[in-house]
Amino acid sequence: MKKTALLVLALISAASAQATVYECRDGAGRKVYSQNPGKNCKSLDLGKPSVYTAAPAPTKQTAAVEAPAAKPAPDNSAAKAELAAAQKALAEGKNIRYGNERNYAKYLERIRGLEAQVKAAQEKVNAAAAGKDAH
């Protein structure tokens, strides 16, 4: 079964080069995939191959953290909301390991970035609280 799946994947990747793939039946009635047509073969329509990037798509949480506020609020509610979003993104980020992070150092680098966002948001909350106390 694994060999069949690997063969299909190999043929699909070969299909990206515009090659036709045929599904054939051998003498024992098993399915065999080939690029060469023969008897007991039918052409497969595999469609257009998909292209994927290694970089993960941004999540709503990270987009909310990266977007700057339009104008600072009189209180620190915006800073607190940004801190909460950054903390949530960090918690979710620790539970996910992307395919391009097979090297553990890449995972740690992404987590350090999320931790830096949390720290920056915490500093904004502290600065807003200090500014409120000064007035």
Results as ranks from 00 to 15, higher is better:
Lys60Val: 14
Lys124Val: 03
Lys106Gly: 10
Ala55Gly: 10
Pro72Ile: 08
Asn103Cys: 14
Asn126Ser: 11
Glu115Asn: 06
Asn95Leu: 15
His135Gln: 15
Glu115Asp: 10
Ser77Tyr: 03
Pro72Thr: 12
Lys71His: 13
Ala134Lys: 13
Asp133Thr: 06
Glu109Phe: 05
Leu83Ile: 03
Gly93Gln: 08
Ala121Gly: 05
Gln87Met: 09
Lys119Pro: 03
Ala85Tyr: 10
Thr62Cys: 01
Arg110Leu: 04
Lys119Tyr: 04
Arg110Gln: 06
Asn126Gly: 08
Arg110Val: 03
His135Ala: 08
Ala89Thr: 11
Arg102Asn: 12
Leu108Tyr: 02
His135Val: 07
Asn100Gly: 09
Lys119Ser: 14
Ala57Ile: 01
Ala81Asn: 02
Thr59Arg: 02
Lys60Trp: 13
Ala116Glu: 15
Ala64Cys: 05
Ala91Asp: 14
Glu123His: 02
Ala67Gly: 00
Lys80Cys: 07
Glu82Val: 10
Asn126Leu: 06
Leu114Gly: 13
Leu108Gln: 14
Gln122Lys: 04
Ala130Asn: 06
Leu83His: 03
Ala89Asp: 09
Lys80Trp: 07
Val125Ser: 05
Val125Arg: 07
Gly131Cys: 05
Ala134Gln: 12
Gln87Ala: 11
Pro74Asp: 03
Ala70Val: 12
Leu108Glu: 15
Asn76Trp: 07
Tyr107Asn: 04
Pro72Phe: 07
Ala134Cys: 02
Ala89Glu: 07
Gln122Val: 04
Lys132Ala: 10
Gly93Arg: 08
Ala55Phe: 04
Ala121Arg: 01
Pro58His: 01
Leu90Arg: 03
Lys119Asn: 14
Ala134Leu: 09
Lys124Ile: 12
Arg112Trp: 05
Glu115Ile: 08
Asp75Tyr: 09
Glu109Val: 02
Ala116Tyr: 01
Ser77Pro: 01
Pro72Met: 12
Arg102Cys: 08
Glu101Ser: 08
Ile111Arg: 13
Ala129Tyr: 04
Lys119Gly: 12
Lys94Ser: 10
Lys132Thr: 08
Tyr107Phe: 11
Ala120Lys: 15
Ala64Glu: 14
Glu115Arg: 04
Ala121Pro: 12
Thr59Val: 00
Gly99Asn: 13
Lys71Cys: 02
Ala79Ile: 04
Ala129Phe: 01
Leu90Met: 05
Lys94Thr: 13
Leu83Pro: 02
Lys94Tyr: 06
Pro58Lys: 08
Ala89Trp: 05
Asn95Arg: 15
Ala67Thr: 14
Gln61Cys: 02
Gln61Phe: 05
Tyr104Gln: 15
Ala67Asp: 12
Lys60Cys: 00
His135Phe: 04
Val125Tyr: 11
Pro56Asp: 11
Ala81Val: 10
Gln87Leu: 07
Ala57Tyr: 00
Pro72Tyr: 09
Lys94Glu: 15
Lys106Asn: 13
Ala89Lys: 06
Leu83Trp: 03
Ala127Met: 03
Gln87Lys: 11
Tyr98Thr: 10
Ala86Ser: 12
Ala86Leu: 03
Pro58Ile: 00
Ala57Gln: 06
Ala81Trp: 09
Leu83Gly: 01
Gln122Phe: 01
